[in-house]
């Protein structure tokens, strides 16, 4: 395959209109590692991201352990019970975490690659983040 056509299958597979009506939380801030990543730190933070939509804010810390990634953070907003799901481009739901009363959550053992999170709340439409890369 020529370099110009590289990734064409994945690009074509990205087409999906089923989420057009979902609310979209856009990336507000992204920061790199706070300090030099050293081997002695088991799960170093390799990035921090914040997504926002109206009064909802999702703050994420991206932790790395070998090829595996963990997303930990908090969801702030006015809602009761909520779940946070990790979705892959195929539509597959890789993991789901419940949001604690403090708003904290953790999604562990994630593979690298494109991902988006969907927040499901009581009596509210689902809210999804922009795609980002682990």
């Amino acid at each position: 395959m020529s370099e110009d056509r590289e990734g064409r299958d994945a690009a074509l597979a990205a087409f999906d209109r089923s989420g057009d009506a979902m609310d979209l939380a856009v990336l507000v801030t992204e920061r790199g590692p706070r300090a030099e990543v050293v081997r002695s730190v088991e799960d170093p933070v390799v990035g921090e991201l914040s997504f926002g939509f109206r009064d909802v804010r999702i703050d994420l810390s991206l932790h790395a352990r070998g090829p595996s990634r963990t997303l930990a953070g908090t969801v702030r907003g006015d809602f009761g019970f909520a779940l946070l799901e990790a979705h892959r481009p195929s539509g597959r739901r890789e993991d789901v975490a419940s949001i604690e009363e403090t708003g904290e959550f953790a999604l562990q053992g994630l593979h690298r690659g494109p991902i988006r999170l969907t927040l499901r709340r009581d009596a509210e439409p689902p809210l999804t983040t922009e795609w980002f890369t682990l």
Binding site: A13, G19, M22, P89, S90, G113, T118, P125
Partner: peptide, 21 residues
């Protein structure tokens, strides 16, 4: 990561829950 083709065999909760036009 290689190309990932959509998996049409499962029921995507977003598709089910989406209230879009």
């Amino acid at each position: 990561m290689g190309a990932r083709l959509p998996d049409q065999s499962h029921e995507d909760p977003e598709t089910v829950l989406s209230s879009g036009p």
